[in-house]
Amino acid sequence: MREIYEGIIKSIELLLSLDGEIYRIILLSLYVSLTSTLISALIAIPVGIVMGIKKFPFKQGMIRVLYTFMGLPPVIVGLVVYLFIRRSGPLGNLELIFTSAAMIIAQTLLVTPIITGLVYNGTKEGGEKIKNLAKTLGANKTQTMILLIKELRISIFAAMVSGYGRAVSEVGAVMIVGGNIRHHTRVMTTTIAMNHSMGQTDMAIAIGIVLLILSFIVNSLLYRFQQGE
């Protein structure tokens, strides 16, 4: 318990000290996770909506695969991405290993199935009605898609927040492909893991608290957004 108490004190101290390093770690975390969430969303929202309103062969099988991928362990994703982008891997020429781009790739792969699955679930509920309405009012395909996104915005937004939460809190993938390099690829979760292995519990707790506060802010905004409806 002493550690948790000291961690809280230390986290306040850290944040007030305006220490460049901790802010850089926090911002890199946000940058990597937000970017991968946004890239994932661009892929996952249309795919999830189409899966929710269209009938096509092997749909049930695809959905089962999608649900499985929603629970992919980050270390597995990290390992696979690592094998592809390492210097001797097939994509070694792109020189992505141990960069923030590598972390974004890994998290995008991790988060895309999650957002797709959640958007699919949301669309399955009300998508058919919205599609029919759009059609009876004379919307073309693009206009129908825009209307679906607009009308399903709450579940889409919730899906993105879940995806972001997964990205910002995972450590396995970014540790492997990013390498936890100071000033380059050190993010909040890898810092926590490293500090724990160094036995510096208070620092780990301090960053853990920052992570929680950020989650709280994001979720509070989501809550306001939903309450407004």
């Binding site: 009605k129 029919n132 309405l133 009876t136 004379g138 209307l147 009308e151 915005r153």
Partner: peptide, 19 residues
């Protein structure tokens, strides 16, 4: 076709109203 489609409509028993 799209021209015909734009010229007809349907009202359901339980209509969907946009949010």
């Amino acid at each position: 076709n799209q021209r015909i489609n734009r010229n007809m409509t349907m009202v359901f028993q339980k209509p969907y109203l946009l949010r």
